[in-house]
Each structure stands twice: as C-alpha cells, then as structure tokens.
Design a protein around this nucleic acid. Structure first.
Lengths: 219, 219
DNA sequence: TTTTAAAGTAAACAATGTTTACATTTAAGT
DNA sequence: ACTTAAATGTAAACATTGTTTACTTTAAAA
C-alpha cells in the first residue's frame, strides 16, 4: 500500500490490479470491497467513483481474464509450422495448464455465477465463446486435410472442448490428486479423444513421440 | 406453510425438504436462512436448534444429493442384462440427464465451493468419489472381456468421467443451446469417447442402433 | 481567480449469518 | 400429580457485506 494524497492518481487501475492479484491466490468469493479499500488505503466507498458496483469490477476482471486466456491458450492453434495433431495436443496442454495455474480465474470465466456478464462480454468480443471459433476452424481444417472424420464440425469442437473442460474442472475442483501423474493422465485423455476424432486409414503426423507411437494408421 | 404450535414437531426434516425443493428451482446462493424461516413460519434463529450453522444444513443437502445422484445414475452400471457398451451409453445418458434436470444440485455436489464438505462425506461413504468405484470396476470388466483397451483402468475411468462432467458443465453453465440437438450432441460425444476406448479388432455388441451402425470391428 | 467537475470521505442502510439471553413446551423422575 | 430438566422456539443484538447519500477536498477549466 503506497502512501498517497487525497487524490490517488490511478486508483481504478490499482483496484483492477489488486483484484486480479487477489484472484490469482484466493477464491473470487473472498474478494470483498474491504480487501480493495484496505489494499489501496482508501475508504470503503471510494471504489464507487470508478465502478458502478462490485459486479462492474468483476466484469472488468472477466474481460482481462479472457484476454489472458486467449493469449495463453491459442498461440499454437493457427501455427502452421506445426502439424494439425500437434496443434491440438499442445493447445489442449495449454488449456489445462491455464486452468491449473489460474484455478480461481478459470472458475470465474467458465462458471455459472457470472454467466450473464460473460455472455455480454463474449457477445461483443467474439460472437462465440472465446477461442471457440478458432477451435472450430481448426477442426474444419482437419476435416479438409482428411485427418479428422468428416462430421459436424461444431459438435466435434464441442467434444474437444468438453473433454478439456471436464478434466480441468475435475482437477481444480478437487477430484483428483494428479500432481505427479498429470502428464500420463493428459496423454491418456488426449489419445482417447484423438482416436475417436481421426479418420480411419490416415497416417498421423506428429512431432510428439507419444502420438507417433500410439496412432498408427488403421487399414 | 402449515400452521403449527410453539413446538413444530419435525422442523429439522422440513428445513431439509424446503432447502432441497428450493435448490431444485433456484441456485444454492439464493438459499438464505430467511427463506427457510419464512417458509416454515419460524424465527430467524430457529434453525440453529437443529443445525450447528448454515454449512451443516448444506452438508445434509449434499449427503441427500449424493444419495439421489447414486440412485438415479448407477442402475445400469451393474445391469448384467445389458451389454457392456450399452451400460456405458445409458449410464452416461443418465449422468448428463441428472445434471440437466438438477443443475443447481449438480453444481453443489461437484463444484469447488463446498469441496471440503463433499470430501468429508465421500471419505466416509465410499472412500472414493460417489459412483466412481463402480465405474472403474465396470471399466476393468470391459478390459477382461477384451472390449476395452488394456490400459490403466483408473485413468480410463477418469477419461469417461471427465467427458461426461465436461459436457454436463458446459450445458448447465450456459455455454450451449442444445435444447433441440442434445441427442445428436450426446451421440457424437459418446461415439468419439468409445472409439478411443475400445480395443481394436473387437465387434461391438449393442442394442443401441446408433452404436451398431457406427462401431464396426477394425481389422 | 472563480467555478465546476472529479475523486475522496464518513455515516447510515438493508441483508445476511450468527450469538446470547430468555420463553415455552415436552418429557422424565419422583 | 408435581417438579425439574431438556428440547425447542423467540427476540434482540452483532459483525460483515454491498450500497447509497451527503459532504469535503482537490484538480482543472473558464
């Protein structure tokens, strides 16, 4: 808490920063306005000069959170230097890693509680769910290349998302103790998922040793 | 609200019933002690004569919730009159149906917020997560029958659970509008999952038309 | 320099979970 | 039947939380 004069200078930004730092460590439920006023050395009601109410601050956090999510999870998705399979594998890893490294933020972004705020944000930002359009396009690419089964690409993308969301949620919500066996868990999950998605009689091209070993063409 | 004398008679049971009915309709967050006192026609503090605090009531709700969950989702799992594949297919359907029909309860049981209470309950009740042991055993049966790939059964069971948990969460937390296309969505999901789990060169036996059509032996 | 808007404070509210002291009823012991 | 103790209910008060209102201070524009 930096000493400051009556006028703080950039209090709004500081509220946001403190809130995001807090959520990086503790659950969003514990983020009270008192935490923010104490941390900034301001009064309980100072925040109302910068945000309409607490939900408006949360909305900003969710916006920033989706930016962070997009930046951290999508770099491989359109990376033409990687094979399609590798792109899926690496993106899935980044997805689950984001959830594990930012469990409270992940819950805030993908949970039910602030679904109404999320929908507002995403309807402006992306029309669809954040990053989902890119995933679906990659699935369609995979179909064109003959790597993936030619089925409804929306549903295939949903299957991929549901799988990654499911494992992420189980881990961060306390259903698994995977500290030491996470790599094996993820590989089993990905192998199962991909086996169900790829077209038959296709040679899988991947730089991931595991996948080359596993995914043989089925003639 | 039934008129009653000073002593209610079965107030504790009524608190539980009202709470479960409430959660069947509205989110657990909105369940306040005022709701309960108003609905029973008692004072704000009457509940403390029957529960240590609000969390103790929630704990009871979670216990009853897991009972309901087990009853509604596991009947096919050990049903020897069905093929193994059909048992997985139907159990998955019941799982997602439970989540869709009881979204608030599902979130209460499988969310992070009351994970500490859940863990207490499940450590006494089942040692593992509710129903998960039965799932894993069925997976092991499948391996013995040669229907499923012979791999780590714990991880295979987790993959199945994660898939069903993932699609359930996406639906009830507002990421999909699947009212009219749910059946197709589930079938795509299950087909993908099962294809990744079954052993090669095995003829799938199922009474589900879809699965017979889809899952051909891969020689 | 004066005025105005922005940015902060203090005090009060209602809602919530909770505790304490008290009241009433039931049930048990004699 | 009478007394007593336990169970069960009430009322009032508290701290915490989000929020609003009236007021104050500062910065910036006229």
């Amino acid at each position: 808490m930096i000493k400051h004069d009556y006028h703080h200078g950039n209090l709004k930004e500081e509220f946001i920063t403190i809130a995001m730092d807090f959520i990086a460590k503790e659950d969003t439920e514990k983020l009270t306005l008192k935490v923010l006023s104490d941390a900034t050395g301001t009064s309980r009601s100072a925040i109302y000069k910068h945000f309409k109410n607490k939900d408006a601050l949360i909305e900003t956090i969710i916006e920033k959170g989706f930016d962070k999510f997009d930046i951290e999870t999508t770099p491989y998705l359109k990376d033409k230097s990687k094979t399609l399979i590798d792109r899926f594998y690496l993106t899935g890893q980044l997805y689950v890693a984001f959830a594990r490294n930012n469990p409270n933020l992940y819950r805030l972004l993908f949970g039910k509680k602030y679904a109404h705020i999320r929908e507002e944000i995403l309807s402006i930002k992306d029309k669809d769910c954040s990053g989902f359009s890119a995933l679906q396009k990659t699935v369609e690419d995979g179909q064109k290349q003959g790597v993936l089964k030619k089925e409804n690409s929306y549903r295939q993308a949903i299957v991929i998302w549901a799988t990654m969301h499911g494992i992420s949620s189980l881990i961060i919500d306390g259903f698994m103790d995977v500290e030491d066996v996470y790599e094996e868990m993820y590989d089993t999950l990905f192998e199962t998922l991909l086996t169900g998605l790829v077209a038959n009689k296709v040679k899988i091209i991947s730089t991931i040793p595991l996948l080359n070993k596993i995914l043989q063409p089925r003639s």
